[in-house]
């Protein structure tokens, strides 16, 4: 505990005071070594029936193995809708999605998951967790149907417990009663850690992480950033959607800026500035249309 003068204190000092140890706000990471194309997005367009307009317009890009691509933008510029389309929660009105060479444009959510897509959802209470389920039941939310956890339709509770205990241990998820804690009673940070543990442990080829650190404390943010970088280093393709410019600059190897449903620019975080990104995000500038 302590007090500090706002004009003098730095972010690092403030974080140390809050967490009680040095916090690495600047994520340390090696340069990316992009491999083959994992996700190929071609001309994706999505229609929003409620607002009677296209929320995503002709979006195309690729994500390679071993790189973190960040979709940046101000909230409400089509990122959420795009992720819904990518993960199968909503239908595309046009375009093609290819995951590791397989066409998944009209695949079911379950099929996309089987094909190696993991998804850390934007809203952990809406999509990420069944809040009234126990932690262990939530840990197998994406895999309860796999032979490992069921036998002729009967859930193998012992295996679920074993698996959940392992994830809790490995990813340091803290809760009152371990595997049997009701998810609702856990802190936001630990809920998010549980989701991340679940999604990362499935060993995906593509990890889609949407605002993975929203509303969390600095300690948890640091932890989650490390996990995401570790995934990249393990050769996974990562698509990060974030509103936080700091996070965008720190984590990504490539930045795509989205404005009103379109991608208006692609940047290398080492060669751009927060100011430049801001201009694109606000729609004041765009690439490719003769600036």
């Amino acid at each position: 505990m302590g007090t500090a003068d706002i004009s003098k204190v730095t972010k690092e000092e403030l974080s140390r005071m809050m967490v009680g140890r040095d916090v690495q706000l600047q994520v340390e990471k090696e340069p990316a070594k992009p491999g083959e194309v994992v996700l190929d997005v071609q001309g994706v367009t999505m229609h929003n029936a409620a607002h009677k307009k296209d929320s995503v317009k002709n979006v195309s890009f690729q994500v390679h193995a071993g790189e973190i691509v960040c979709l940046a933008g101000i909230e409400g510029n089509g990122q959420t809708e795009f992720v819904y389309g990518l993960t199968g929660l909503e239908k595309l009105s046009a375009g093609r999605l290819t995951l590791c060479g397989q066409d998944i444009t009209s695949a079911s959510i379950r099929q996309r998951s089987k094909d190696g897509m993991s998804h850390i959802p934007e809203d952990r209470h809406k999509h990420g967790l069944v809040l009234d389920y126990t932690l262990e039941e939530n840990m197998v939310l994406q895999r309860y149907w796999q032979p490992e956890f069921q036998n002729h339709g009967f859930i193998r509770k012992d295996k679920v417990r074993e698996y959940s205990d392992r994830l809790i241990e490995q990813y340091d998820v803290r809760s009152g009663q371990g595997s049997l804690t009701i998810a609702r009673s856990m802190s936001g940070g630990n809920q998010q850690k549980a989701i991340i543990a679940r999604e990362i442990d499935r060993d995906p080829k593509l990890l889609v992480a949407v605002q993975p650190t929203r509303g969390l404390d600095v300690g948890a943010i640091e932890y989650i950033h490390r996990q995401i970088v570790a995934q990249r280093d393990a050769g996974k393709a990562v698509l990060l959607v974030s509103l936080e410019l700091d996070e965008v600059m720190n984590l990504s190897d490539r930045i795509l800026v989205m404005y009103e449903g379109e991608i208006v620019g692609e940047f290398d975080p080492k060669k751009t500035t927060v100011q430049e990104l801001g201009l694109y995000m606000a729609g004041a500038r765009r690439q490719g249309k003769g600036e």
Binding site: L89, H119, P121, K126, H127, G128, V130, L131, D132
Partner: peptide, 8 residues
């Protein structure tokens, strides 16, 4: 308990 999470 949570239609959206089930769909997810």
């Amino acid at each position: 308990l949570n239609k959206n999470a089930a769909r997810y």
